[in-house]
Amino acid sequence: MRIVVDADACPVKDILIRIARERQIPVIMVCDTAHELSDSYSTHITVDKARDSADICLANLLEREDLVVTQDYGVAALALGKGARALNPMGLEYTNANMDQLLFERYVGQKIRRGGGRAGKNKKRTAADDKAFERALLRAVDGKNME
């Protein structure tokens, strides 16, 4: 198992590095040139700033049994298709059972935004969100169902 991270806007890098280091799980962080990463544990892959370049690189790296941490439903769907597990920074496991609904909600939100509307509010991250992610990550690295 490796943990592969869509690191462009990942708010839980410190948590996952700590847990991965404790458990000696390799971590690969993928980001574009607009972001700077620095930790002494993970492998960093920096790609150009083109649209979806980090997502494409990440999808190409994935292997069966990897764990992907991403906020992007499309990346999560690709991970599931390759036999990997996927987790978002709020602790939600992406599964075949919830992916269709999540992709549909993304489509509706994009349609609303294209029409000039707003598709919901982004809540500020809390300590409880970090704890939820940590619990889900621990379950994932222990090979347990996260649901």
Rank of each mutant, 00 (worst) to 15 (best):
T126S: 15
R18Q: 15
M99L: 14
R135C: 01
L58Y: 01
D39R: 11
R125V: 12
R51G: 03
V12K: 07
I112C: 07
S38A: 03
Y107M: 11
A59V: 14
K123E: 12
D52E: 14
A132F: 01
P26S: 14
R125S: 11
E93R: 13
A128E: 15
H44K: 15
V75C: 03
R118D: 01
R85P: 00
R23C: 02
D48E: 12
V30I: 13
M1W: 00
I112Y: 04
A127P: 00
D130L: 08
K111A: 11
K82L: 12
E105L: 12
G81F: 01
P11T: 07
D8G: 05
D39F: 11
P11V: 04
V27C: 10
S53H: 05
T126Q: 05
S53N: 10
N60I: 00
R114E: 13
K123Y: 01
E105P: 00
Y73V: 13
A59G: 12
A84E: 02
R114S: 09
K123L: 12
A84N: 02
G115R: 08
A77E: 11
P26H: 09
L37P: 04
A132H: 09
V30E: 01
D8A: 12
I28Q: 08
A9D: 02
G109H: 03
D130W: 00
V5W: 02
H44N: 12
P89K: 08
N98M: 04
R139L: 15
Y41A: 10
